[in-house]
């Protein structure tokens, strides 16, 4: 077997280990570890799953099993620099959430869950973002975009943003 360069950095592993005293076993670190890797790489490729499993003393299948339950972690390629969740649940849908999603995908030439070719923007439908008082809304990285219209949303998503934590 050809040795591949390690994906998890020492810093990521240190971040995971720093959380270990919080839990009575290492399996509970699965979701925090996935978040740490995802925040750094914007995706969690299979190789990273194997390495997380190694760090946690689990079988890779156990980590992959948990990962695939959530549609949250991409595995094929990294998300865009901005990952935009467009809410389509009832309160946003009543105020144009579905149309917002369709418009943004059309304008950026991608399908839902897709990333623009330049790697800048990923657009995903989301279920209730819990900001129904500002419907329709979008979560772009860590920023909640409130009371969006197709035009304001289009402009907002062109802006550079701090990475998601």
């Amino acid at each position: 077997m050809i040795a591949q360069p390690r994906i998890l950095t020492d810093e990521m592993i240190a971040q995971i280990e720093a959380l270990a005293p919080r839990y009575p076993n290492r399996r509970a670190l699965t979701l925090p570890a996935l978040h740490i890797v995802n925040a750094a790489l914007r995706y969690v490729p299979l190789q990273a799953v194997v390495e997380i499993a190694d760090v946690l003393g689990l079988a890779p299948a156990e980590v992959q099993d948990t990962l695939t339950f959530y549609q949250f972690f991409h595995q094929e390629k990294p998300c865009g620099n901005v990952r935009a969740f467009v809410c389509r649940s009832i309160s946003c849908a009543l105020r144009g959430g579905d149309e917002l999603l369709t418009h943004l995908c059309h304008k950026n030439g991608i399908d839902p869950y897709g990333t623009t070719p330049n790697g800048e923007l990923t657009i995903e439908p989301a279920e209730c973002l819990g900001a129904c008082d500002f419907a329709p809304c979008i979560l772009a990285n860590d920023d909640l975009l409130k009371n969006m219209t197709p035009e304001t949303a289009e402009a907002e998503l062109k802006k550079p943003r701090a990475r998601a934590t």
Binding site: N25, R27, L31, L34, H35, D65, T66
Partner: peptide
Amino acid sequence: AAAYICGEETGLIESLEGKR
């Protein structure tokens, strides 16, 4: 990680334990 079922108390517990 964005899953509604984690609001069910035993779903939440399983998720916290690092499982589906």
